[in-house]
Write a protein that binds this DNA or RNA. Structure first.
Length: 107
DNA sequence: GTCGTGACTAGCC
DNA sequence: CGGCTAGCCACGA
């Protein structure tokens, strides 16, 4: 038996796990996910993990946005991200989320 | 071990 | 509001 090589680092797994916990119709921020996994300040690394997102669509990476209420980025395009979130019940004003404080869920 | 890159954040002008 | 800088972390080459 050979050692099952880790395709992903523990850090990235934690990111997907935390992201998968986001309920429908709600959004969270990269910083909150980073905080949730006990690695505050690693918002940038969180973005890197979601960009790879090998668990998509199991992991709703589109529910993760920036701290200022903007959609941030998305592997398939920020436009697509907004469309998906609109279907979830989130509304937008250009790149900005409406009622962000209301939709934002703290992990 | 070092460098470059990135879906980030906060501060400053 | 828009644009720029510096700081931050993790990964791949």
């Amino acid at each position: 038996m050979k050692k099952p090589k880790e395709l992903l680092s523990a850090f990235e797994k934690s990111v997907y796990e935390a992201t998968a916990k986001i309920p429908c119709g709600r959004v969270t921020t990269y910083a909150e996910i980073a905080r949730k996994i006990k690695k505050p300040g690693s918002a940038r690394a969180v973005g890197n993990a979601l960009n790879k997102n090998p668990f998509a669509p199991k992991v709703p990476c589109h529910r993760v946005v920036k701290t200022d209420g903007t959609v941030g980025g998305f592997a398939s395009g920020s436009e697509k991200k907004k469309v998906i979130l609109k279907k979830e019940g989130i509304q937008f004003n250009n790149e900005k989320i409406l009622h962000f404080n209301e939709k934002f869920i703290k992990l």
